[in-house]
């Protein structure tokens, strides 16, 4: 579906994308993650044919995006980061103008618009101006707008940024439905790791212009060697005492603002029981206890977080790259 080979993009001395190779298969939901300035947007702009790579190639459905970007674009539906619906056009007009720009035949377009408005749950608002819509409605309209020409690939740049949890869930459901019913390949970037975890079949993590990890969410968790996480929260003053109890159990605890956290390798449930008993014996009052599998959050921090923190000096270059969005 999408083939990226040795993609490089340089801005003067600065290398924004440094040799990315990636293949996305039909019907996949693929998530592209990375901190700000990692080269995500630059990669995406090259995938969309909006920017010419310094070297390397991008093929979408077998079409070389450098040689024939317009042919490639016919197969792509794009939802950009900034919600782009035209506030001064009605929902219907929004879809109709884009359908015509994608050269959808007129008789087909009318049916298509009805269907898409239904899909986005906006049928009742067909004749309302998009400017009057809530954030979630706009996002849903924009998402179905990207489907007006029946693309094989749907491309979403941070599809749920700025949405409340209800609307986010609605957009997720919509995307799953599109993926399942129409077998549309979805490529999305996101800053919500939870979203990537829940939605994506595979995830690629980009940092410093390089693809540093690629795999299913489960694979990534495994690779980073993180185990079950135990957290115990209590009053600030008591945290040191709790950490002592952790250490006696042979764990390597870290004290956060209001909790003590540690990764447990063997028998996490048994360890937890013993830990609670040990802490209770010190007469410290526990506020809450929790245990969870490592999330993509933990993976992401482990893979990129330390590096970002180490290289404070490189921040000078980062806003520049963000500006090129």
């Amino acid at each position: 579906m999408i083939e990226v080979k040795n993609l490089v993009k340089k801005f003067g001395d600065f290398t924004a994308v440094n040799g990315i190779t990636l293949e996305i298969k039909k019907g996949e939901i693929f998530g592209l993650l990375g901190p700000n300035g990692a080269g995500k947007s630059t990669t995406i702009n090259m995938l969309l044919g909006l920017m010419k790579p310094t070297s390397g190639s991008v093929y979408v459905n077998g079409v070389d995006m450098q040689k024939d970007p317009n042919k490639g674009k016919e197969n792509l539906g794009v939802v950009t980061q900034e919600t782009v619906v035209e506030p001064e056009l009605t929902a219907e007009q929004n879809l109709s103008i884009f359908g015509r720009l994608y050269h959808v035949p007129k008789d087909e377009l009318e049916k298509k618009i009805g269907f898409l408005l239904d899909l986005a749950d906006l049928k009742a608002f067909a004749k309302s101006y998009a400017g009057t819509f809530s954030g979630g409605m706009k996002r849903r309209l924009e998402t179905v707008k990207a489907l007006v020409h029946d693309p094989d690939i749907l491309f979403l740049d941070e599809p749920t940024t700025g949405l409340d949890i209800q609307n986010r869930t609605k957009v997720w459901a919509l995307l799953r439905q599109i993926n399942k019913e129409r077998n549309v390949t979805i490529l999305m970037t996101t800053q919500y790791l939870e979203e990537a975890d829940q939605m994506c079949n595979r995830i690629g993590i980009i940092d410093h212009g390089k693809l540093i990890a690629l795999g299913t969410p489960a694979e990534l968790r495994q690779k980073t060697g993180l185990n079950t996480i135990i957290e115990v929260s209590a009053d600030r003053d008591d945290l040191a005492k709790i950490a002592q109890a952790f250490k006696k159990m042979g764990l390597d605890p870290e004290i956060a603002s209001n909790k003590v956290v540690a990764s447990v390798k063997n028998d996490p449930v048994g360890t937890m029981e013993k830990l609670i008993k040990a802490v209770n014996a010190t007469k410290v009052k526990i506020q809450s206890v929790s245990m969870h599998e490592p999330t993509i959050d933990d993976v992401f921090l482990k893979l990129t977080g330390s590096e970002v923190r180490d290289e404070t000096g490189s921040y000078a270059g980062r806003p520049m790259v963000m500006g090129r969005r």
Binding site: N70, V84, L101
Partner: peptide
């Protein structure tokens, strides 16, 4: 400013 320009440029138009 609104991002419409980008939206048009990703459609297959001249």
């Amino acid at each position: 400013e609104l991002g419409n320009l980008k939206a048009f440029l990703i459609t297959p138009i001249n």
